[in-house]
Amino acid sequence: MFNIGLYHYIALTTILFSIGLYGVLSSRNAIRLLMCIELMLNAVNINLVAFNNYVNMNDLSGQIFSIFILTVSAAEASVGLAILIALYRRRSTADMERFNLLKW
């Protein structure tokens, strides 16, 4: 077996982030878009923990930071879902293509 190093973590988070980004850019369903954002946030979290472990082992700032991000993202998800529900009630759809009122 081979040793797992920082580069592996970075590769994992890059793949995870890219999948999330692809999802954010291409989903037509707003719920899927929200879920993909969570995916991107998690990729960032893994990155923080990995860097903390390999670069600076004396404190746990990366870990603590990721906890904060989790908390904020939970709040953000609840607000996002609430907005989505309000939008759905008004427009009867969750299609991102239809949410384009704020334009020229």
Partner: peptide, 17 residues
């Protein structure tokens, strides 16, 4: 240039990234 502001969040994100 105003056609760039099409109201779709995803296209803004596309340009951004």
């Amino acid at each position: 240039l105003r056609t760039l502001q099409n109201g779709r969040v995803q296209s803004y994100l596309m340009i951004f990234f």
